[in-house]
Amino acid sequence: MSPMNPSIAAKEPQAGIDLLRIVRINEEIKAVVGVAFKINIMALNAIFLAKRAGTAALGFGVLSNELRTFSQDLRSCMGALTVLIHRCVTEVSVVLQDIRKTRLLSEAVSLSALSKLNPVVVRRERENIEHQERLAALRRQLLRALDDAFQLVELGGVLAKSAKIEAAYGQSFAASLAQVSGEFDGVVEEIRNSLLALRHSEFFK
């Protein structure tokens, strides 16, 4: 068989690497969704604790409610990210198929030397470019969605830190409230780090 066109040969492993990176991003998103669910449960327990603490933990109760809303917003946000990831996987798979087809068609045309068949390869290459542009657009959309998620998590961080302050006013419940708010802070920080890592993924470079 004739040697592969070098530009096509270079694209094939790149698309494979992209697919691997998307899979890793998806795994990280799944982990964040799991943690968001954990915050929801923690917030629910915090609300009960605040009720028991009464007036001394009114502010803490409000913040716990806010954290519960935050966890639900975060899950919706991650759901949107998952949809985008699935679209990216589809598009990269199409690009992978494109590359193989283009390689085989180009080889066939170059071996047969029938110039009238070149338009088929030209059309195929045009379609490849369209698919790659669609993938690039999805990549930008995904990065924007990650930025939105990151901003949301920054808000979650503020809520967790405020809860820590409110816990100090919890009188006899102060220790329990401090423990809960500390856990909030830790979990939100965990999500923040995950999202930071995702934003720096090679997939977006």
């Binding site: 193989r100 085989l104 071996l111």
Partner: peptide, 9 residues
């Protein structure tokens, strides 16, 4: 698919 170029040509 992999023998397509050879068959086609």
């Amino acid at each position: 698919a992999e023998v397509f170029p050879a068959v086609f040509s």
